[in-house]
Every structure is written in C-alpha cells, then in structure tokens.
Design a protein around this nucleic acid. Sequence first.
DNA 1: AATGAATGAGGGTTCATTCAT
DNA 2: GATGAATGAACCCTCATTCAT
Lengths: 197, 197, 197, 197
Amino acid sequence: MDGFQRRREQKKVSILEAALALFLKHGVQKISIAEIAKQAKVSQVTIYNYFDSKHNLVHEVFLYYLDLMKEQFFQILDSQMTFPEKIKQIIFTKKEVANNIHEDFYQYIMKEYSTDANYFEKLYEEVALPRLIDLFNQGKQQRFVDPNLSNEAIIFFIQAMNKYIQREEVYQRILPLTEDIMNLVFYGIMGKREEES
Amino acid sequence: MDGFQRRREQKKVSILEAALALFLKHGVQKISIAEIAKQAKVSQVTIYNYFDSKHNLVHEVFLYYLDLMKEQFFQILDSQMTFPEKIKQIIFTKKEVANNIHEDFYQYIMKEYSTDANYFEKLYEEVALPRLIDLFNQGKQQRFVDPNLSNEAIIFFIQAMNKYIQREEVYQRILPLTEDIMNLVFYGIMGKREEES
Amino acid sequence: MDGFQRRREQKKVSILEAALALFLKHGVQKISIAEIAKQAKVSQVTIYNYFDSKHNLVHEVFLYYLDLMKEQFFQILDSQMTFPEKIKQIIFTKKEVANNIHEDFYQYIMKEYSTDANYFEKLYEEVALPRLIDLFNQGKQQRFVDPNLSNEAIIFFIQAMNKYIQREEVYQRILPLTEDIMNLVFYGIMGKREEES
Amino acid sequence: MDGFQRRREQKKVSILEAALALFLKHGVQKISIAEIAKQAKVSQVTIYNYFDSKHNLVHEVFLYYLDLMKEQFFQILDSQMTFPEKIKQIIFTKKEVANNIHEDFYQYIMKEYSTDANYFEKLYEEVALPRLIDLFNQGKQQRFVDPNLSNEAIIFFIQAMNKYIQREEVYQRILPLTEDIMNLVFYGIMGKREEES
DNA sequence: AATGAATGAGGGTTCATTCAT
DNA sequence: GATGAATGAACCCTCATTCAT
C-alpha cells in the first residue's frame, strides 16, 4: 500500500470513527451526514468520496465496530488473566463480540439491514458463543464454575450481565453492579468455588 | 364528564393508540405525524388540537403505554395462577411493567425525555421491582424457589429472560426458548422445587 | 364538485400551467421544482401536495398538454373552415394533436417515461392520424387534393410541415414559410386544384 | 507537431469521442463530467486540462461532431453511386451534415449556445443545402426527378425523411419505412422516372 | 501533465408545524 | 373543533469545478 492509499485509508477510518462515536451516542437516525462531516472535520461531500450513501456508511461503520469488538474480545481471551478476571474484563469493558453492541445501534441494524443482521448473528453464533462456552469450560476445569452448570445457564448469565450493563444508569441506581455484588451474583449462579481439599 | 368531553377523550385515545402501534412497530423517529394522522383517520392538524407537539405526543404515548403495562402486570399478579404460571405469563406476554417495553422505544425515551426516563425508573424501582420480589418471596414460601436465592439473583434472572425475549429472533435460532428449556434454566437457577415430604 | 375541490383543482392547474410553460421554454431537466414554485407563486413544498414527485409532475404536465392539444385540434377539425384553411390553421397554430409537441419535451418523455410514450403513440396512431387522413379524403372529394395522392404521401406532407415549424428559427431564415411559399409547396405536392368544369 | 503535441491531441480526441458517444446516447444534461472521465479513462481534472468548462467541452464536441458529419456527407456525395443510392445513403445512414444530428443534442445547442447555433445554421445554409440542391439537380438531369419539382418541394422531402428517421420507433410501427414504401413516397413526390425512349 | 481529494452550490424530497376557512 | 392547504428548515445526495501533490 503506497502513500496515497495509506492516507486515503486513514481518512476513511477517521470518518468511520467520527460516525461511530456519534451513532453510539445519539443513534443512527438522529445523526445527519452534515454532523458526521463536521465531527470528522471534512466537507459533507467528501464523505461521498468514501461511501456511496448514508446506508452504505452505516453498513461499514457496523462492520468496523464489529471488528473493533472482535479484536478486543480475542485480546482478553488470549491473555494470561485468570478466569474470573477475564469474565469481569469482558463484561466491564463492554467488549464482548457484537453482543455488547449499543442496543439502539443494534436495533437499527436489525431493522434496516438484513444482510448485516445475518452476518452479526452468524458471527455471534459461530465465533463468540463457542469461545465463551470454551472459556466457561476452562472455568469448570479450574473449578471456578460448578461443573454441573448447563450451557444454557451460562448463556443466561451472560445475557443478564449484558442487560445490566446496557441499562447501566437505571440499574446502577437500583442495584449497583459493584464488584462485591457481581461476585455475589456470579458465585450464586456459578456455584461457589469448591475449596481444593 | 359530559358527552363532548367523552367524545374528545375517545378521539385522543384513538390517536394515542394509533401512534403507539406505529411507534412499537417502526420506532419513534421513523413515524411522521402524517402517518399517525392517517392511521388514526384524522387530519394532521387535529392531532395538534390534542397535543402541543410531536414531542408532547410521544410523551403522552409513553405514559399511556406504561399505564397499559401496569394494568396487565397487576392483573397477572392478582390472578389465581400458580407461581410458575405467573412468571411465564409475565415473561411470555412481554407485559411486565416498563421493563419489557420495546427496546428502541425505551432507548428513545431514555435519550430524549429525561423527565419520562426518571418517571419510568421510579415506577420500575418503586412499583414493579417490589412486587416482583414479593412474587418471588411467595415462590420461596411455596417452595418453588430456593429460599437461599438472593434478590440480586432474582433480578438477574428476570433481566436474562427479558434479554432473551427482546432478541427473540437471534436467540430462538441459537437456543430456542421452548418451555422445556425455560424450565431447565429456571430450575437450574431457582433451584429445583423440593418435593414436599 | 364543492368549493374546496374546485379551488384545489384550480391551483393544481395553475401549477401545471406554470410547469408546462417552463418545460416548453427551457426543457424538463433544466427546470427545478423551485423555479416552478416561483412561477406558480406557491411554496416549493406545496407542489408536493399535488404531485408525488417531479417525475409524477412531468407525467401529469404531459397529459395536460396532450389534452390541450387534442381539444384545439378537434375545434379546428369541427369548425366551418374550408379544407385549406383547416390545414393552415393546424399547421400555423401548432395545434395538431401531440405531433406538434415541442421536440425536447417529446424527446424527454420518450426517453424517461415509457408509459407516457406508449400512450402518446397510441393517441397519435388511433386518434390523430385517422382524423387527419379523413380530413384529406374530404379534401380529395372537394377536389382540393389530387385524388391519387397516397396516404403515405399525406403523412409525409404533415411531417415535413411539422419539421418546418419546429425548426422555425432556422428555416425561417433559409426558406421562410410565408403563406405564398406554403401554397406553392402545398399545391406542388397536393396537386393543383382542378378547375371545376 | 511534435510527439508531445501529438499525444496531447490524441488524448483530447479520445475525450471528445467519449463525450460525444455519451451525449448522443443520453443527452447532454444527463451526462456528468465524472461519467465522461470514466468513459475516457482519464481523471476528471484531466478534462479540465483540455477544456475550460463543461460548457466549452460541449461546444467542442459539437464542432467535432459537425466535422465528422461533414466528412461522411461529402464522401457520399463524391462517391460513384447513382442518384437514388446517394439519397438513400444520406437518409438511412443519418449522416447528412448537421441536419440529422440527434434531436436533443441539437435542441441543447440551439438553446444554450447561440454562437454554435448560428454556426450550425450557416453551415447548413451555405454548405449542406446548396450541395443537396445540386444533387437533386443532377437527379433531374438524369431524369430521376421530375424537372418541374421546385427547390422548396425538395427541401420538404428531405425534412419529411429526417422526421421519419428521428421518430423511428413511433413511425416504424405506424407506417414502416421499408424500401418499397420509401420508393413509393419518393417517386410519388419526385415524380416517376420517365423511361428513356 | 496528471491525479486523488475536496468543495460550494444546488436539486429533489420530507417533516413538524401553522394558516385560513 | 376540524380540516385542507401551505411552509421553513433540514436532509441526502449530485455536480461542475478547484486544490494539493
């Protein structure tokens, strides 16, 4: 990739990032091309040099976001952390592949972009979920998790955590997700770690 | 309330219902006043006789929806069903107060209407949650639920179920929420009902 | 039709007329909705109360224009004028059905609106042409036209006249279509009227 | 002209040809500089190295087209064909100077470029018409054409043919311009060739 | 000379809202 | 009170043209 290509790629990414930030904060429909242009400090029309339409821009932002998530997800999984640390990292950093995606962004994609929706589901089903279940199985071997816990319960646990994080503001006031509380819930569901005898 | 007032009230409700139906199906931002007017079979201007602005209309639709939910929620709670039946009703009918509200409707309100958002949170915290915890405590007494299960775990269970229902299409394919599965998960987390001896 | 309807119809016609005048003078593509709005002395958006889109507006303008032409064409045909007078009227007033239509308007319709194009062709073929051939047959009976003149030659004569009128500015300078010249050509082709003996 | 100049000239011509092809097919207004650049396989800006503006480009394309037409017109006239063959060639190949030019291209020029329009008219009047009349006079001498046929009638005949060709699709359905029909009309108007005795 | 990138102006269209009856 | 008509502002997008390399 030569200098031209590289600079072009950089500008494209800077537009993607500007758009992503705004979409996550305000929702896709509320954000106009003009606002993205302003945030990315380019002219409105320049955006059309990189993306065919707003529709196409949203599509690429979505893929870009999934990539970011995926990368961070794998970094955590492949790290040297202990099982509980990994779980907490995944949940607290909101970085689990595609599942932690902001709810309204997710809803928008699901309604308006059937191709993206299918891609997302496949990714979740074929990439994220197996690796999460793997992780929990390691947790079982290391006796962090009750070996009898079903896969279904594991998935439920993850959903519940996600839900909490999404509605952070509401739930934080009602039942703050402090580390203590999380441990309580976590081990309540996972089963207390059996003392090694 | 005289005849005039009554007719006025009826027309207002018919507008609210038209708007609600469209908002739930397509989202608030996608629906224009013109579409609501058409659905409610009134002129656009008539809507402005009952509501100051679209903003105000959304606000009233939201309150109207909460009222509907509350009513149905209480109906279930006050019915003669057994504990597991009530739980299933609440979850499967998607009618739990304010929590099961359509996600994008919810997101819109949370972003755009701080007053409504506060009202919703208060309602959830002060009305729905206590009654749900009550319900589970009854479940504990009737030995449907493990008496040691913490309130926090209960809330988590509810969140997880909600999540499942919201993302119905995705999760149905990955892990279909059949009644069998639900029972499995349910008693996995709740603790199996101890047989009365 | 009540007062409301009538006023609505009038405004619609006034928009059609404004658009038609501009289209004929400058061509369809050059004229913006804003310019039509200004000419019709309405707001730009008002036009969208009457027409779904510019495409639809052009379509209706076209039909409106055909109607105008048809009406004037029939008026001439049904009048008490002599054969040569009718011919001259039709040609000089540019009012022959759909054939005298301004060339660029015609070209635009033919390229962009296949339905309209088909409708136009049918109208020309089924309404205008038969009546023109009728007219010439009357001319033959009245001995204004050589009885041996074929229908094909008649059609050619009409085409040539139209061509002249369309490119008026050019041809007027090269070979001005004065009445004298027209008579010359006319009888040159039609055959001189035989003196009644 | 040195190598640089020659290459420059070639590129200019390739742009002209790309533009001409697109203009004839889609009309001047519909074609953007971007489309011409793409068709000519150069960058947009390159076009501005050769032409000051789109306006100027259209102007030069027009002149280029006239030159092409003129050349082909003279080739036919100067060939060894018989009179009727020449006539048919001119008409059927649509290559008569400037008169057979695509109608919307012509209309555009006439409306937007008064200089070009004047140039075109002059060319038609001073170059094409005299040569056509010459041709017919040869036809008269060779007894292909009735010697009494006036110049005006000749011009009319040409116009009618042009008209037919322009509205090919319409007229082909109504009165197909087969060679038989053409001969019929032709000799109907021109007068049958008198058999040499 | 040639190009990728950038842009101001303008086009069609939608929408929440107001006017006039 | 109800409605058809009207509108200013904004949105997505296109285009001829210029900038910077």
